[in-house]
Amino acid sequence: MEHKKKTRKSTPPIKVYCLPEERELIEGNARAAGMSLSSFLMTVGQGYKITGIVDYEQVRELARINGDLGRLGGLLKLWLTDDVRTAHFSDATIRALLNRIEATQNEMGRVMKSIVQPRAES
């Protein structure tokens, strides 16, 4: 006798009765989390915290950092092309620029890590 492996689709569903506006709210929350309605309800029902797919405040911070990197990279490019405007740049200035680029990259890494590994709730 064959033993069939149980799957979610082979078991009876849980029905949830709700008003149309409640359903819209639940569907909106699922979309905001980047999840299907079924996955969202399963996750919430098992007591897991739902986090949005994107933290817009952190995305704005990444955009700011990216702008900083662009400006720093532009300065470095000018120096590398022997542009007249950078003729007065000393080695110390270039080292400071490279250190600033590295610090900005580290800051970007910190923000990205906080998106991937969100802060624990208080």
Score class of each variant (00 low, 15 high):
residue 115 I to Y: 01
residue 13 P to V: 12
residue 117 Q to W: 00
residue 118 P to F: 00
residue 17 Y to K: 11
residue 54 V to G: 00
residue 111 V to C: 03
residue 102 E to F: 04
residue 101 I to A: 07
residue 49 K to S: 01
residue 57 E to R: 06
residue 55 D to V: 02
residue 7 T to S: 13
residue 112 M to I: 12
residue 62 L to R: 07
residue 73 G to W: 00
residue 20 P to A: 13
residue 13 P to K: 12
residue 77 K to F: 14
residue 26 I to Q: 01
residue 38 S to E: 14
residue 33 A to H: 04
residue 101 I to Q: 08
residue 6 K to M: 08
residue 8 R to D: 11
residue 106 N to E: 13
residue 80 L to V: 11
residue 41 L to G: 06
residue 42 M to I: 14
residue 49 K to I: 02
residue 120 A to K: 12
residue 13 P to E: 11
residue 79 W to I: 07
residue 79 W to L: 03
residue 91 D to C: 07
residue 104 T to R: 03
residue 122 S to H: 01
residue 118 P to T: 02
residue 66 N to C: 10
residue 35 M to E: 05
residue 77 K to Y: 15
residue 33 A to I: 08
residue 94 I to L: 14
residue 112 M to E: 06
residue 85 R to V: 15
residue 1 M to Y: 05
residue 82 D to E: 13
residue 46 Q to L: 07
residue 79 W to R: 01
residue 78 L to T: 11
residue 40 F to K: 05
residue 89 F to E: 06
residue 89 F to S: 06
residue 86 T to S: 15
residue 9 K to V: 09
residue 18 C to A: 15
residue 62 L to D: 05
residue 103 A to H: 09
residue 28 G to S: 11
residue 8 R to W: 04
residue 52 G to R: 06
residue 92 A to L: 14
residue 11 T to N: 10
residue 83 D to N: 14
residue 80 L to R: 11
residue 34 G to Y: 04
residue 86 T to Y: 07
residue 8 R to M: 10
residue 8 R to E: 11
residue 26 I to H: 01
residue 55 D to T: 05
residue 47 G to T: 02
residue 33 A to W: 03
residue 57 E to V: 03
residue 99 N to P: 00
residue 11 T to M: 14
residue 80 L to F: 05
residue 66 N to F: 04
residue 67 G to P: 00
residue 3 H to S: 03
residue 32 A to I: 03
residue 102 E to G: 03
residue 14 I to D: 10
residue 6 K to N: 08
residue 3 H to Q: 01
residue 14 I to G: 11
residue 83 D to L: 00
residue 110 R to M: 13
residue 12 P to G: 06
residue 23 R to L: 12
residue 22 E to L: 10
residue 110 R to N: 09
residue 65 I to R: 01
residue 100 R to G: 04
residue 83 D to Q: 07
residue 114 S to A: 07
residue 79 W to C: 01
residue 70 G to H: 10
residue 34 G to E: 08
residue 11 T to V: 13
residue 48 Y to K: 05
residue 100 R to T: 13
residue 112 M to D: 01
residue 74 G to D: 04
residue 100 R to W: 03
residue 87 A to E: 15
residue 28 G to L: 04
residue 98 L to C: 11
residue 6 K to A: 10
residue 63 A to H: 13
residue 83 D to Y: 09
residue 41 L to A: 13
residue 88 H to A: 13
residue 17 Y to T: 12
residue 22 E to M: 10
residue 53 I to V: 08
residue 93 T to S: 14
residue 80 L to N: 12
residue 30 A to G: 03
residue 93 T to V: 12
residue 49 K to M: 01
residue 46 Q to K: 03
residue 47 G to H: 02
residue 79 W to D: 02
residue 66 N to Q: 14
residue 81 T to Y: 09
residue 35 M to V: 05
residue 12 P to T: 14
residue 41 L to M: 15
residue 93 T to Q: 12
residue 95 R to A: 15
residue 65 I to Q: 07
residue 79 W to H: 12
residue 122 S to V: 08
residue 4 K to M: 09
residue 79 W to Y: 15
residue 113 K to F: 04
residue 114 S to E: 07
residue 70 G to A: 09
residue 107 E to D: 15
residue 33 A to F: 04
residue 77 K to I: 11
residue 7 T to M: 08
residue 59 V to H: 08
residue 76 L to V: 09
residue 15 K to L: 14
residue 18 C to F: 07
